[in-house]
């Protein structure tokens, strides 16, 4: 399991453990996330993703282990930590009778922020023209954008996003991803949980798989796919048969010595017209690593 140290680390967790009754929700979890990185925590429902966010955001106390987020000890510096982090919860927990602007004003009151910040975050999530509407009339996508706006009001150094793409239509999901990318480019560290592999593949610079509270893999999506994929190569050959030229596709195993020799011979004979690597999807990698389906 990767564990880095250094000044640029915004999230550091070491051997975090938390149980609820007899159930071990998080077991010996260690991870680190660099400044400005988008880190994805992937796993099936009930794997411990949300509990990890709650541990890292100081909402619950670990039974053992330690964690520092934005330089704050999550157990001993809860108030300082709360100023440094923003959370977008799994539930769309907004005050539905209040307008979008009023929801944000309330957050400004809680944090003691100037209300001019509201327009900045509304612009960021493209909600300025809907600000005067009651949140109860909003679609899921609009609510999700408002939740992100609320979490960003106090300019947190670290943003936790719990299932940001859940229940969103493709257009809303695309808009939310654009916002997340922009925040990352501006230096905000983002830890998101999801069980949508495509979302993680598109967004995250690094992902970790969590199963039954344990991290079973932690790397860049590309490395994971290379490491755990089947390493296949699709070769398009041009062959002469019965005075006619014919194209055929053959799949080779890169790790197979005989396949390597066959490829070398075809290349020397000039038969190879095209080569395509067949990369595994993150979902296949997850299944391979965890031995369980995602949902």
């Amino acid at each position: 399991m990767e564990h880095q140290t250094g000044p640029e680390l915004m999230i550091e967790a070491h051997q975090l453990r938390r149980t609820f009754g007899q159930r071990q929700a998080v077991a010996d979890l260690s991870l680190s996330v660099r400044r400005g990185e988008i880190f994805g925590l992937l796993g099936p429902n009930g794997a411990g993703k949300t509990t990890t966010i709650r541990l890292l955001s100081g909402q619950i106390i670990p039974d053992s282990g330690w964690a520092r987020v934005a330089g704050c000890d999550v157990v001993h510096e809860p108030l300082r930590l709360k100023q440094q982090i923003g959370i977008v919860f799994e539930e769309q927990n907004l005050y539905e009778r209040l307008t979008a602007r009023m929801n944000l004003r309330f957050t400004c009151w809680l944090y003691g922020l100037p209300e001019k910040r509201i327009d900045e975050v509304l612009t960021l999530v493209d909600l300025r023209d809907r600000a005067r509407e009651p949140v109860g009339k909003f679609s899921q996508g609009l609510k999700q954008r408002l939740l992100i706006a609320r979490a960003l009001l106090h300019k947190p150094a670290v943003l936790f996003l719990d299932e940001p793409g859940r229940g969103l239509d493709p257009i809303s999901a695309h808009t939310v991803r654009q916002v997340i990318r922009r925040l990352s480019e501006e230096g905000t560290t983002i830890l998101l949980t999801t069980h949508l592999m495509e979302e993680a593949d598109q967004l995250c610079q690094r992902v970790a798989f969590i199963v039954n509270g344990r991290l079973v893999a932690n790397d860049t999506p590309r490395h994971l796919k290379l490491q755990h994929g089947k390493r296949l190569l699709q070769v398009t050959l041009e062959e002469q048969q019965d005075h006619a030229r014919r194209l055929c596709d053959i799949t080779l195993k890169l790790d197979d010595v005989s396949d390597q020799q066959r490829l070398a011979r075809w290349l020397s004979e000039g038969k190879v017209r095209a080569l395509h690597t067949q990369e595994a999807s993150l979902e296949e990698v997850f299944f391979h690593v965890a031995g369980v389906p995602l949902s």
Binding site: L79, I87, F89, L110, Y111
Partner: peptide
């Protein structure tokens, strides 16, 4: 579930 949000604030 807004209580959770409130408890995550200062």
């Amino acid at each position: 579930k807004t209580l959770r949000m409130l408890l995550a604030s200062p």
